Amino acid sequence: MTLLEVKNLKKYYEISQGLFKPKVVVKAVDNVSFSIKKGETFALVGESGCGKSTTGKTLLRLTGTTSGEILYKGKDLLALSAEKMRSLRAEMQMVFQDPYASLNPKMTIKQILMEPLRVHNKFQPEERLEKILKILEIVGLSKEHLDRHPNEFSGGQRQRIGIARAVILNPDFIVADEPVSALDVSVQSQVINLMLELQKEFGLTYLFISHDLSVVEHMTDRVAVMYLGKIVELVDTEELFANPKHPYTQALISAVPASHPKEVKERIVLKGDVPNPANPPSGCTFHTRCPFAMDICKSVVPALTEIESGHITSCHLYTNNKEEK
């Protein structure tokens, strides 16, 4: 069953260059389409600035969209009024990237976890504390932490509190925006395992946003690779790591550290820097860094094409071969 479907999503920003200069349009998210099945973990990966976080925020209407459709359980979220969207937010929550900035430093943990229950009028007032204590126990904290403030916790503990705040409303869908990137490596695995346990217990569906492919390989079902606001490859996680097609994906996977001392990996080093999103290259935006770039790449935008069953990519290396056959 499809829980969320995104069709031709666009989010453009206009940037002023000065009083007498025309505004520049930055295509942060450019014609992105994908669907997420109920109960799965769908990943968005790519370098910083590729549009991953912007995509996640637009799905929850935390930022506006330029055009497109976002269908959640068949409802078009972009057509809903603010009041109807507010009531739906209990089902759609977010775990933010920075556990140090996402918690109000003036509120105690009890107040932070009580707020969503009060705003959405969940449970009777006398039941709310019981619910808070239960969710704290699930994320590895206790009653002793209730009256403490966020500054009294470590980064891993703060992220656990952020996860507890998202899960306490019993949502169906959670956008996790690089939830472990700000944490020490030793703590990352604890938070990842916690998210997997919560997914099994509550039947959660995740949109997992990350640039760490080793984490993505461990905990996701399908992956969409983004580059300069566009999806360039979409496939099951296992297939992506076994058989990456797009040259950009191949370079990203080659940068994942070897899992064994005797494993030998050939690193693909991309030439040049990520192009300015305010002035992207013509044709395939990756052609300026691609080791396999052809003349057609400089002028023609490759279409997302299913080159194998369930394996979608946008690269002229495969569309050209299909045409020749």
Rank of each mutant, 00 (worst) to 15 (best):
M294K: 13
H211C: 01
K27W: 08
S189N: 12
A90W: 12
L59M: 09
P280F: 00
K200V: 00
M114A: 14
Y13W: 09
K75L: 12
G310M: 01
I132N: 00
P291A: 10
Q199W: 06
T305N: 04
T285M: 15
V215Y: 05
A293S: 13
K122G: 09
N321W: 14
V191F: 05
D273I: 12
C290I: 10
V185H: 01
D221R: 06
R118I: 15
E238K: 15
G46V: 09
V301M: 11
L71I: 01
K75S: 07
L44N: 05
E40P: 10
V180E: 05
S33C: 11
K11I: 11
M92P: 08
L204E: 08
A101P: 06
Y227G: 07
G156L: 03
S214K: 02
I163W: 00
V95T: 05
T205A: 08
K10Q: 13
L141P: 01
A166F: 02
K134H: 13
H260S: 14
T63I: 13
R267P: 06
P280A: 01
P125A: 07
T108H: 00
K57N: 11
S259I: 15
S33P: 06
K37Y: 13
M92F: 06
N104F: 08
P125G: 01
E323M: 15
F96Q: 01
N8H: 09
I253M: 04
S214V: 09
T220G: 10
K245Q: 14
G229T: 09
K10I: 14
D76H: 10
T108W: 03
E5D: 11
E263L: 13
C284A: 05
S186P: 09
E238F: 10
V232N: 03
D98R: 01
V223A: 08
T237N: 05
L103D: 00
E130M: 11
C297P: 02
Q188G: 06
F42P: 03
V26A: 02
Q199Y: 04
V6S: 03
L136D: 07
A28E: 04
V274I: 15
M226F: 10
C284V: 06
